[in-house]
Amino acid sequence: MEILLQPWAWYIAGPALTLVMFLLLYFGGNFGMSANLRTMCSMAGGDKFSDFFKLDWKNKKWNLVFVLGAILGGFFSSQFLTNGEMIELNPNTISGLEQLGFSTPNNNYLPPEIFGGTTLFSLSILIGGGFLVGFGARYAGGCTSGHAISGLSDLQIPSLIAVIGFFLGGLLMTHLLFPIIFKIPIIL
């Protein structure tokens, strides 16, 4: 039991994600998270605005149920599978955070500078960042699960190009844009 409570090593998590992909394929689905966002737009009446959302979402219900399970899995972990151990980050990462004006991490998951506030600044980051993820995932035809794991596992060149894009964008944001973006609250 104790071993479950500790943070899991990469060599447990990686193969476990392959297992998730296999189970979804075996049950007649596939591993692609961002497709659910399209299904949700479709359910909310998006088909009135674009043919892109004209789809038979009843065939996609299994994936929405998978999302519901993922939410429950997060809840279950927070309630029963935590021993309060702090995340072990590289000291260089922590000094990088300090340079951005962030406090030393006091929880394992999210910096309060982005996720804790109700300022216009943090609201714009949350909604704007989400917008980029949703738009980019659909434009690229998939996200980390669909391209980086499923697509690369099937040796798909398009997925490799998408993953190169994921990293290009991520490096650009982390190294060039973060120092600019996180100066804004200091100036204000």
Binding site: G136, A162, F166, G170, L177
Partner: peptide, 11 residues
Amino acid sequence: GGTIFGLGWAL
């Protein structure tokens, strides 16, 4: 598409 996704993913 991937680059736009990556910008948001890192943010």
